[in-house]
């Protein structure tokens, strides 16, 4: 059970993982549209800003594409194995399936957008309520779970272990996060 939760890539990779992962990402984008939860960065989930539906799909596409390109490049450089692009693409798509739960948790952390100005006092009142704090912490835990999944996606699809895997993953994730923020900020 633990393996299925944290490293399903032992059993599923390639095209199968890509289809399941993308179905989940599209589902998360649709739910995110209704809960106003954006995945505006490979590690980000923010609630409150209403936007056209295509923004939510674009978030998913940009985040996933960057992760795949960066970690396929890292794998090609550091791995001794002959890695396949489809495995990196599939495992990273599947690693993001937990975004569905983050999008659902977004219903509990709804916040006013920039076009709905409220006072700081009112804002703090809304933020410091039990359900909002619980949903916020739940979202954080889900993002940590997703990072663990992405690490296992990287090590399985690229056959990397030890310090080389840890450092290339951390550096790759930072690059992906910065680039995704820049690209999505430019688009919006």
């Amino acid at each position: 059970m633990k393996k299925w939760l944290f490293n399903p890539f032992i059993y599923i990779a390639g095209t199968k993982a890509l289809i399941i992962g993308w179905a989940a990402m599209l589902g998360a984008a649709v739910i995110g549209y209704y809960s106003k939860t954006h995945f505006d960065g490979v590690l980000d989930a923010h609630s409150g800003h209403a936007a056209p539906m295509w923004f939510y799909f674009e978030d998913a596409l940009v985040d996933w594409s960057l992760l795949v390109v960066i970690f396929y490049t890292a794998g090609s450089i550091f791995s001794r194995s002959s890695i396949r692009f489809i495995d990196v693409a599939g495992t990273f798509a599947l690693a993001r399936w937990v975004m569905i739960f983050v999008a659902i948790a977004g219903f509990g952390v709804y916040m006013p957008g920039p076009n709905q100005p409220v006072s700081m006092e009112e804002m703090m009142k809304r933020v410091m309520t039990g359900p909002v704090i619980v949903c916020g912490l739940l979202s954080l835990a889900l993002v940590v779970w997703m990072v663990a999944l992405m690490y296992n996606a990287f090590t399985t699809s690229c056959n990397l272990k030890g310090g080389k895997a840890v450092w290339s993953f951390i550096i790759g994730l930072i690059i992906a996060e910065v680039l995704s923020k820049l690209i999505l900020h430019t688009i919006y």
Binding site: F9, I10, Y11, I12, A13, G14, A17, R80, S81, S82, I83, R84, D87, T91, T156, S157, N159
Partner: peptide, 17 residues
């Protein structure tokens, strides 16, 4: 084996090493 392609390839690569 009921495993994914990269898992099997990793097992083989570990044996090669």
């Amino acid at each position: 084996l009921g495993l994914s392609y990269p898992t099997v390839r990793n097992l083989l690569d570990d044996i090669i090493l």
